[in-house]
């Protein structure tokens, strides 16, 4: 039997609408933007489900993760699997990147800033609702921030669009973009429960794509926009 990986939650804090924390683990186990760590907290007796934790923007050189369950505390030692799932893949040619947080915290999307900056891309963040003050403070000043209406008026600007939303809102997103959706280059991170973390094909996280039903836990959680937009 393989020995599970462990790491300590060294800090826990409220970050926008979600509880986040600093997880002290080896850098080789840090999830890429959009990937997740399937975590379990032996100190939490209510933890019948595993918790998928995503990397969020935060303290430099430390792994900030979210969303933490309410009961998890600083000092808790988590057991976890190596990073799972397909994360964002920003094409090397991209010089204009838009991030769109659709009624969710933009904290996960903002981890793409570091990658986009290395290829000198201009970055704009579109949010609905506006980010909370603590998240605003963590966003570099070079990033433009605007509302979703501004994005809809400038859909020809981004060479790459990264979106974060709940899977139930895919139809609303398709309706929002209308016909322009089919021309967008980019990817979407789908938020949903993933109780079996890819072990059981339990179907809770099934999402309809152009290639048939796929599981967010194992085929995602990041999908190309062309795969999931306007799929009846």
């Amino acid at each position: 039997m393989t020995v599970p990986l462990t790491g300590k939650l060294t800090e826990v804090f409220q970050f926008g609408s979600e509880k986040a924390g600093v997880l002290d683990i080896s850098g080789k186990h840090w999830p890429a933007p959009g990937q997740y760590l399937a975590c379990q907290n032996p100190a939490d007796p209510s933890g019948a489900l595993i918790t998928p934790l995503f990397k969020v923007i935060g303290i430099h050189d430390r792994l900030c993760v979210s969303p933490l369950p309410a009961r998890w505390q600083p000092g808790d030692v988590l057991v976890f699997q190596p990073p799972q799932g397909q994360g964002f893949t920003l094409p090397a040619h991209v010089r204009r990147m838009a991030l769109f947080a659709f009624e969710v915290s933009p904290a996960r999307l903002l981890t793409l800033i570091e990658i986009a900056s290395t290829q000198n891309a201009d970055i704009a963040l579109f949010c609905e609702p506006a980010p909370s003050k603590d998240i605003l403070l963590s966003i570099p000043s070079m990033i433009e921030i605007a509302d979703s209406a501004s994005l809809l008026g400038n859909l020809d600007w981004p060479e790459y669009l990264a979106i974060d939303l709940a899977w139930q809102d895919l139809d609303r997103l398709s309706a929002l973009f209308g016909d322009q959706g089919s021309r967008l280059e980019g990817q979407v991170l789908l938020r949903t429960a993933m109780p079996c973390r890819g072990m059981g094909e339990c179907g809770v996280c099934s999402v309809k794509t152009r290639r048939g039903w796929r599981f967010v836990c194992s085929h995602g959680p990041v999908f190309d926009l062309s795969e999931v937009l306007n799929v009846a």
């Binding site: 399937a38 489900l49 595993i50 072990m199």
Partner: peptide
């Protein structure tokens, strides 16, 4: 669901 746990103890 114990089989979905990261660690089965």
């Amino acid at each position: 669901s114990v089989l979905w746990h990261v660690d089965q103890g």
